[in-house]
Design a binder for these strands. Structure first.
Lengths: 333, 333
DNA sequence: TAGTTTTGCACAAACGATTGTGCAATTTAC
DNA sequence: GTAAATTGCACAATCGTTTGTGCAAAACTA
């Protein structure tokens, strides 16, 4: 059913129907009687205008592209949820792309989204730089979670350095000196900043010589394998700092398997909290990210941008949630 | 940059450019030389045709609408991931809608998707019936996870009855007689079928008098509150059957809080497995749903449907993963 | 009553692609 | 060398909306 057919039914022009349905009846002096008739008929046949034609004519799609690395990671799932809700409340729909932490897929996705004429982009990019795309992206874009240094693309992220610094300091204050950090995907900004936070905290406490950084991606198996290696060697750390929720789960799995009881034999702290962390045994101390905040602020920023306003990057503070996976140890030094 | 501008640049007609870029050069006898020139220029300016215009002309959007109740539930997050990947591999993009288990939002979302002329719909509907929408949905649609009885809409789901029957039987075989079932959102088919599976197993084992069904939605807090109530009364169950992953987590939280050790004082089994279940203490016995299977089969079915083929509903079998949260109890009777 | 203003609506051109068809120019046939 | 066939491309209509503008009819004005 098109607007023309509806117009024929009503024995009037498509113009008039369109004007009524877009609420422009006053502006174009459509009589109340006519407007009524149009609305009734539209309701009765429950007609909805073809959005594709509308988009083409209006040069606007009311669609936002959301590109994230892995929707099955609860962090991103929650982010997606908030973003979807915020956008729906503002009359936009979201085209979802999962890049699987693969720059090729990511680039392809952005291209596709652009050719579909999205009104804006929200991207949690994989790499540290965006060699291929930065020039091509012609629509308002806000980066989520991850971002690029030295390029003035607006972004909204957790203060990863701060969170990691806090976590590490917390361990040090509890008396830990031999602390290993199991990182995620190197080259992604959250990872680099968390690593830097860890390093800074260690150095500022005179432990610059004892840095131990291992691991390679954000997966559970990375946490598992890295932990196994760490506990197999002499000089086993007294505490582990896992740089995301999935890594932390992998750590626990390995520690459980090798009977390294937490926190008696080893302490564990995670970046990125999850609801079930309090149910693990022991419950897991973690840095909680302001997930909802990131989503909301990102959408708000994107809208500012679409209104041709300038927006400043935003770093939201995370929070340490203390539970039972970190124990104090007697100071040796 | 439009195809016309590109054509002007090349000093030829838009027709020719379009035909080359859609690979129809042979069919329309475009010379190789011309085709080459077009491709080079298109590459150089990296031109991509406006998909909106294309969609309008071709009456096809290469877009699928995905409507799910809650993307932050890991079950649906995983489903979304599989679906997105399968669709991307077939050249489609996904418009994501989170209905928040609200029929109003769901209906609105479907309407919006239809007016956007999606080529197909994948929906995990909230209710048991679809009073408002069933007539209006004019595009191929496959239901996910949840479905409607007595209407021949194709669906792909876990065999919920079977899974619940297995879980309950498992408990009974371990000697449990007093088994409470904590359900999710009543009125959703998975819930009803799981409840029926529980009931059937109980009845077939002569425990028809001992049915105990409580709970009201798929949330963690429902599991928490329901469990608290159950253990407060006399005649506390010896086993709990939680009808989804979030409810199970809530159960554990309550049991932990009230020092009801699992599985010594009470056993727990969950419908819907999650990776971290093996790390909980005790590790959680659960019915594992074939999530990836559901996503893949659903997409395949949708494509069959779009090819005007008939498709049969599919019920995929879940599997019981035995861990440590269920203990045998001595038979009293 | 004639002139002016207001009211109510329709025509037609765009948005940017795709495609049936037509028509020169070139090649082939004989 | 002429007729027929083939090659190579462009014209114009179309998809379903929106919107600047135009033009009767109705309502005022004096």
């Amino acid at each position: 059913m098109t607007i023309k057919e509806l117009a024929r039914e009503l024995e009037m022009s498509a113009t008039t129907v369109s004007r009524v349905l877009t609420g422009q009846e006053k502006k174009y002096r459509i009589s109340d009687k006519t407007a009524q008739r149009v609305r009734e008929m539209a309701n009765q046949l429950d007609f909805a205008p073809n959005q594709i034609a509308r988009n083409l004519r209006l040069q606007k799609t009311n669609t936002i592209g959301l590109v994230i690395p892995n929707i099955s990671n609860p962090f991103f799932a929650n982010l997606a949820r908030t973003v979807e809700e915020e956008l729906r409340n503002r009359g936009k729909m979201v085209l979802l792309c999962d890049s699987k932490d693969d720059t090729r897929i990511e680039e392809e996705s952005v291209q596709l989204l652009l050719s579909r004429k999205v009104d804006g982009l929200l991207v949690a990019p994989v790499g540290e730089k965006w060699v291929h795309l930065q020039k091509k992206v012609t629509v308002p874009m806000v980066l989520l979670d991850r971002y690029f240094e030295n390029e003035d693309l607006p972004f909204v992220t957790t203060d990863n350095f701060f969170g990691a610094y806090e976590a590490t300091s917390f361990l040090i204050e509890k008396g830990h000196r031999n602390i290993a950090c199991i990182q995620g995907l190197t080259g992604t900004t959250p990872n680099e900043h968390r690593v830097k936070g860890y390093q800074s905290a260690m150095q500022n406490h005179g432990l610059g010589q004892r840095l131990r950084i291992t691991g390679s991606d954000y997966s559970m198996s990375n946490g598992y394998e890295s932990t196994k290696e760490l506990i197999a060697r002499a000089d086993t750390p007294t505490a582990l700092f896992a740089l995301n929720n999935q890594i932390a789960v992998g750590c626990m799995k390995a520690l459980k398997e090798y009977d390294f009881s937490i926190p008696d034999k080893i302490s564990l702290i995670a970046f990125d909290d999850q609801p079930y962390f309090e149910l693990l045994s022991p419950s897991l101390t973690a840095i909680k990210q302001p997930m909802e905040g990131i989503g909301k602020v990102a959408v708000a920023s994107l809208f500012e941008l679409m209104d041709n306003k300038k927006v400043a990057p935003q770093m939201l503070k995370p929070m340490l949630i203390e539970r039972d996976s970190v124990a104090p140890i007697p100071q040796k030094t």
